[in-house]
């Protein structure tokens, strides 16, 4: 469970203060499917980075599973990122010199897992995403959709509770984007909390709960009426 209370995130740009997040209060339950929409510069990425402990709020409190995570040490925060949270980026962010399997293995290496266990988990994660035959390919030998699937495998190989996706389809063609969304929704149906930033209303509409941001504020927080993908269609 995620609880944000009175979150502010200010950036100092020259002599101006940008309120990227302005008094955001938000509670997210385990297993929810949430989309975050809003115009460019409205604070969506900032919110997601904050949820992923990549950024710290200027003020306000952030509790993850009841624990105040802003008070944790650097090493403890790194552990939370490693075990509890998975990230999927618009730019994929694969390490170009590493193969698909090695990229997926990275979080397990950072966690200090034994090599034998790592191999089987990586194999399973790649198989789940239909990438078994691509495991020894370098990122530049993969299509955009395949790259994003490798990134998803990497984000989920540690079996986190929360998956954060910042415009995961932003760099993909329509069909690959559809594939990626379907995969993310499948993961959500298996229990992961999915929080996805998107500027594509069609995709945002599929989430059970839709947030809308404007100038750093959460101005709309609504449940999906049509409920097209959240539960039913599996």
């Amino acid at each position: 469970m995620i609880q944000l209370t009175g979150i502010h995130r200010d950036f100092q740009v020259g002599d101006q203060t940008v309120h990227a997040l302005d008094d955001v209060t938000l509670t997210i339950d385990s297993g929810e499917y949430i989309s975050i929409m809003g115009p460019s510069g409205s604070g969506k990425s900032t919110l997601l980075n904050l949820l992923g402990l990549l950024d710290k709020p200027s003020s306000g409190s952030y509790r993850l599973n009841g624990q105040d995570v802003t008070a944790l040490s650097d090493i403890q925060q790194a552990q939370v990122r490693n075990r509890e949270i998975g990230f999927v980026f618009q730019m994929f962010h694969l390490v170009p010199r590493l193969t698909a399997a090695e990229n997926v293995e990275l979080p397990l290496i950072l966690a200090g897992e034994a090599p034998e266990q790592r191999k089987s988990r990586v194999t399973r994660a790649l198989a789940d995403l239909g990438l078994s035959d691509r495991s020894h390919h370098k990122p530049d030998q993969l299509s955009g959709g395949q790259r994003q699937r490798v990134a998803i495998a990497r984000a989920t190989v540690t079996e986190p509770n929360v998956l954060l996706a910042d415009e995961p389809t932003g760099n993909l063609d329509h069909k690959s984007g559809q594939d990626v969304i379907r995969i993310l929704e499948e993961l959500n149906q298996r229990g992961i909390t999915l929080i996805m930033v998107t500027h594509d209303p069609e995709m945002g509409q599929r989430a059970r709960r839709q947030l809308h941001m404007m100038d750093g504020r959460l101005d709309i927080d609504q449940l999906n009426q049509t409920d097209s993908a959240g539960d039913g269609t599996a």
């Binding site: 790194a78 490693n82 990230f87 990275l106 979080p107 966690a111």
Partner: peptide, 9 residues
């Protein structure tokens, strides 16, 4: 990226 994946300083 390494930090996002859980690398400590």
């Amino acid at each position: 990226l390494l930090k996002a994946l859980g690398a400590s300083s």
